[in-house]
Amino acid sequence: MDGVSKTYGSRSVLDGVSTVIAPGETVALIGPSGGGKSTLLRCITGLARFDAGQITVGSHRIEARGPASQYDGVRRMFGMIFQDFQLFPHFTALENVIEAPVRVRGQPAAEARERGLRLLERVGLAERANYYPRELSGGQKQRVAIARALAMEPRGLLCDEITSALDPELKAEVLDVLTDLKQEGLTLIVVTHEIHFARRAADRILLLADGRIAEEGPPETVLGSPTSDRARKFLRTVMA
């Protein structure tokens, strides 16, 4: 990421964000609301456009204000998980998982079902395969969403506050799945308010405030001895 900037009207949401994320790294994006965390994530995958700078994902280069097609490659490399799940409500859990492999990649249905069941098993939901989203709890829905993203065999996941809508005990089951995925070598970029999860699972923390990276480094450094005033102020409120 090099100098990524975005404004809404006169308000600057991202102001020259630059960083490098290595393959297999787990990065936690933390910071105050409105600090630009989610926007940065959405800029990577094209759900939001940025006005200046550029992002390089593997061999794919994304220019500011570039065409929609430049995101195709990135979307193959990164799956996205949303705060409010966004499962397809008219499909069962399994159908949610196999929709894209069958329709986008042309995978034969039987093969896709077999793989889909394995993925659901991996997130602990094999016996919920034929349930509709409305019949699942929040944590189960989010795990189906993760399985759905994994079905496209991405190299990493972009997670946008994926536990914010969940009760504490349900949060744990989702975060456990993420920890497993980290072990398997997926690159994870996680926007989160779970400071404990960030401390435990992240290789690196980026603290975003007012559209800039206020603090960046290993969890113990960023959380333990922040250098900037902005970071200290934020951490005081969340750790209190």
Binding site: L47, R75, F82, Q86, F88, A100, V104, M152
Partner: peptide, 11 residues
């Protein structure tokens, strides 16, 4: 969000 979820899956 349904559009975004589908787009993220490459649809």
């Amino acid at each position: 969000g349904q559009w975004e979820a589908a787009a993220s899956l490459g649809m």
